[in-house]
Design a protein around this nucleic acid. Structure first.
Lengths: 215, 215
DNA sequence: TGTACATCAGTGAACGCGCGTTCACTGATGTAC
DNA sequence: TGTACATCAGTGAACGCGCGTTCACTGATGTAC
């Protein structure tokens, strides 16, 4: 470590981008922000100055590429939400049986949250006012991720042929809230004497489906 | 409104407490903090200065009664957690049938969260490091509230006589996580196009119990 | 009944901090002539 | 081939802000004599 008085990592001064490639800095800024977010584990600890230091650039340079801090965080969110969706899709396709496929989604959801706590926090646990503008519910609702979930639920429902056929959107939302419940509690109360984590996840994830089965 | 330049409400300067009743200020401070918390709807917006202004006292006076800000927030938490437990207990006793009694608990839980969003946030949605010291999981786990839940679950289980008898603690935790899931999602995503809220709550709360019933 | 004094419940002013953001600028690089 | 110039990717220094907390203090109130 060669830094003298600063608390956070300071990258060596970055070389200026060649003409016409000013946008390269934009990507570097997003990368650094995401890295900081993970390292510090706290959205509030990620300041414009810290990001600038991590990139090896001066604070005002950030403003060449982002309107304000909000927009920067938003960019990070978008990128990670896409990754989140990709992971869920991969899990879904890993199983042939529709019900198993749905369960795989659920497990992947919880795992994503536990492995990316700070991203999960920003995506799903941040109060509305603190969320970057335009990162609204419509965004989530209209997102590929949510559509994919509804699809998976619909296929599971059809495969076990329940009468009367429940609304896949309603069941999807229930599943989402249940997966979110266990994920967020595990994140906020890591020291709680949880029972076996996998068993718990398995149990609660099964519920919305099992509840639908005929008696 | 007669305040001139300050943003938040400033109480008239408070009259000094008579000899031997210095502790009266302590209660007034907790009251004011709680009021501010609800008004501002943001834990971070509650500053020592704002609290002092709300009470009608100078900032250093706070330190006569609390070690630091952390301890002040902690005091507010404790008080509210007790209230929370009382509400759940009342709900539980409002029904005779054990299963109905448990459901009443669940509904009361969700309602408490929605009606006291900022308190709920502090109690259950704050990251471990931000939580006041000693407001640990052991606190929650050992709390009256949790014991009461386990009791209610055990009674419900026994009343419907499931074989083999599931672990009431395990089921309690599942119920908690499910109630928490729907509560916290409703809080963080108020603009999401939720289906009928009561139906949703009813549906997810039923799950952990229905899942236990014999096929 | 009067007064010196200890105690108690506070206060006023200042500390150092890190923050988001703005402003006027600089200096390397490519281009026109 | 040489040079003036516009453009572009940045920079340095400063702004005002609100924060938690500390320090030396004040002045009303009850008590001892």
């Amino acid at each position: 470590m060669t830094d003298l008085s600063t608390e956070h990592a300071v990258a060596p001064r970055r070389r200026r981008a060649p003409r016409g490639q000013g946008d390269r800095l934009r990507e570097e800024i997003i990368d650094a922000t995401e890295r900081l977010l993970v390292e510090k584990g706290d959205q509030d600890a990620v300041s414009i100055r810290a990001v600038a230091d991590a990139v090896g650039v001066s604070p005002p340079s950030i403003y060449l590429h982002f309107e304000d801090k909000n927009e920067l965080i938003f960019a990070v969110c978008e990128r990670h939400f896409a990754r989140f969706d990709a992971i869920l899709q991969a899990a879904r396709e890993s199983e042939d049986d529709p019900v198993e496929s749905l369960m795989a989604c659920g497990r992947a959801y919880v795992r994503f949250g536990l492995e990316n706590p700070e991203h999960y926090r920003i995506l799903f646990m941040t109060k509305p006012e603190q969320t970057p503008e335009s990162w609204t519910a419509e965004k989530v609702m209209g997102s590929a991720a949510f559509e994919h979930l509804v699809e998976a639920v619909a296929m599971a429902i059809d495969s076990i042929d329940i009468q009367p056929r429940p609304d896949p959107v309603f069941v999807s939302i229930s599943m989402w809230s249940i997966a979110h419940g266990i994920t967020s509690l595990l994140l906020t109360h890591p020291n709680f004497p949880w029972p076996d984590r996998d068993a718990l996840v398995e149990y609660v994830l099964t519920m919305p489906i099992r509840g639908l089965l005929p008696r």
